[in-house]
């Protein structure tokens, strides 16, 4: 029972970075109509940047956060560059072309990361206040996991406020619905697009930074993650942020529980889920209407 609680918390903590990446992806898709298949690579870059910035030191919490936001900012810039150089040309092409271009971009980012960061494994220490375990009742739980969950809540709330209660959020929603009309009202849609890309990629980069103490930052990490976030988005439904939240938690929990109960199958967790969803409700759990069937 105790270990179950620990596994659950672990699962939720695993789900948070997944959610950040998935929500960034969903934002970009909702506003720009672009399937940024390369989004997982931005996560990876964020983790690497953060690892290099820390250079193995255990920081105080404020510094840790500062560096994490710094890594996110770097990834935001990377995202805007990608948008300008690659995706801006493809706004009127079909989904398949976008997918291929994003895949190509991902390959480039993977190659770039090997060139810049090499093939060594980086270890990122947790920030000093959260290095130990916290006891919930009699159950020891890694303190960092709780921190990640809290950070996730804060970011999610901030995102909600931005999209629903701010002027910028209004413009973003307008451009998402009808880019041409928004422009005809004076909204600078290209700038909004760049901003959304920056925000979405920053989320991915932040996720990478926050997740780095919990995983080993090395080559090959992206492979799981690159597919993982996409699986999450498919399960939750393309275009739904709530879906992304629910699906991330679901996948995180699934994996964590499998590690506890059936370790040999822990990697299959998300695939089992996605197969179920694709067969029973191909448009995803939180989306109404038919799945995207055209190219």
């Amino acid at each position: 029972m105790n270990q179950l609680l620990s596994a659950v918390i672990n699962g939720v903590a695993t789900g948070v970075p997944l959610f950040l990446v998935a929500s960034g992806f969903t934002l970009i898709y909702g506003v720009m109509g672009v399937l940024n298949f390369a989004h997982g690579a931005f996560f990876m870059f964020g983790a690497y940047c953060f690892a290099v910035m820390l250079a193995g030191q255990a920081l105080s919490l404020p510094l840790f956060l500062l560096y994490a936001l710094g890594a996110a900012a770097v990834i935001a810039v990377l995202g805007v560059l990608s948008e300008r150089l690659v995706f801006a040309r493809l706004y009127n092409s079909g989904h398949m072309i976008n997918l291929l271009a994003a895949y190509a971009l991902m390959l480039m980012l993977i190659g770039l990361s090997i060139l810049i960061f090499g093939t060594t494994t980086y270890h990122v220490p947790r920030p000093s206040p959260f290095r130990g375990a916290v006891h919930i009742g009699t159950v020891p739980v890694p303190a960092y996991n709780l921190f990640v969950i809290a950070a996730g809540l804060v970011v999610a709330a901030g995102l909600w406020f931005l999209l629903n209660k701010s002027g910028l959020g209004m413009k973003i929603r307008a451009v998402a619905h009808d880019r041409t009309t928004a422009r005809a009202l004076g909204v600078r849609a290209p700038l909004v697009g760049m901003g959304v890309f920056a925000l979405g990629c920053a989320l991915a980069g932040l996720a990478g930074a926050l997740d780095s103490p919990m995983i080993s930052v090395a080559q090959g990490m992206d492979a799981t993650f690159a597919i993982q976030f996409f699986v999450v988005v498919i399960i939750g439904g393309l275009g739904s942020t709530w879906g992304a939240l629910f699906a991330s938690l679901l996948v995180g929990l699934m994996e964590s529980l499998l590690v506890y109960y059936a370790p040999a199958w822990s990697q299959y967790g998300m695939y089992i889920l996605v197969v179920f969803v694709l067969l029973l409700r191909p448009q995803g759990l939180f989306v109404r209407g038919p799945a995207i069937t055209h190219s």
Binding site: R183, G186, V187, A189
Partner: peptide
């Protein structure tokens, strides 16, 4: 000019 510039 672009659409948004004309609108503005």
């Amino acid at each position: 000019l672009g659409v948004e510039a004309i609108a503005r």
